[in-house]
Amino acid sequence: MDNETFNPVLRKFLKQVGVTSQRDIELAVGRALADGRLDGVTSLPVRVVLTVDGIDLTHEVAGDLSLEQSPR
């Protein structure tokens, strides 16, 4: 494996995951706020499961997305 070739490909994929995921989450939260499904909710549990076929890799990241403004 050539790291100089592989690393940019991996970074491009992860950037695509991050950008598209952020957009989809923002749109879904906006819709849920607009139709009242998130009225009074201050955070949302979130979980991402990444699988890589062929090497039996499953990686999970979990956390919470705060919907409150942070103090300035």
Rank of each mutant, 00 (worst) to 15 (best):
L33M: 11
V29N: 01
D35V: 06
L10Y: 04
A28Q: 06
G30E: 09
V41D: 07
A34G: 11
L33N: 04
G30F: 00
D35K: 09
L33H: 03
E4K: 10
L27D: 11
G36Y: 03
K15C: 02
S21H: 10
T42Y: 02
R31T: 05
V41Q: 12
L27N: 13
T20I: 03
I25H: 07
T5N: 12
E26D: 15
S43H: 14
L14R: 09
G30D: 08
E26K: 13
L38V: 11
G40H: 03
G30K: 05
V17P: 01
I25E: 05
T42P: 01
E4H: 08
R37S: 15
T51S: 14
K12C: 02
Q16L: 11
P8H: 04
V17S: 00
G30Q: 07
V52W: 03
V41E: 11
A34M: 12
I25D: 06
T51M: 10
L27I: 06
Q22T: 13
N7C: 06
V46P: 00
S21F: 09
Q22H: 15
R47A: 15
T51L: 09
G36Q: 06
G36C: 07
L14K: 10
F13V: 08
V52H: 04
N7V: 10
A32F: 00
Q22W: 09
L38C: 10
K12H: 08
S21A: 15
K12R: 13
L10M: 12
I25V: 15
N3S: 07
V19C: 06
R11G: 00
L10N: 01
R47E: 14
S43E: 14
R11Y: 04
D2R: 02
A28N: 06
A28D: 03
A34I: 07
P45V: 05
P8E: 04
D2T: 01
L14W: 10
I25C: 09
V9R: 12
G40A: 07
T51Q: 12
Q16S: 11
S43Y: 10
N3R: 07
N7D: 09
N3Q: 07
G40D: 04
L27S: 11
T51R: 14
V41T: 15
P45Y: 06
K12F: 04
K15N: 09
F13M: 10
V46L: 15
E26F: 07
V52S: 05
E26A: 13
V48L: 14
T20R: 10
V19W: 05
R23Q: 10
A34N: 14
L50I: 13
L10C: 03
E26C: 09
L38G: 01
L14S: 06
P45I: 05
K12P: 00
G30M: 01
R23C: 00
P8Y: 04
Q22K: 15
T5L: 15
E26I: 09
P45E: 10
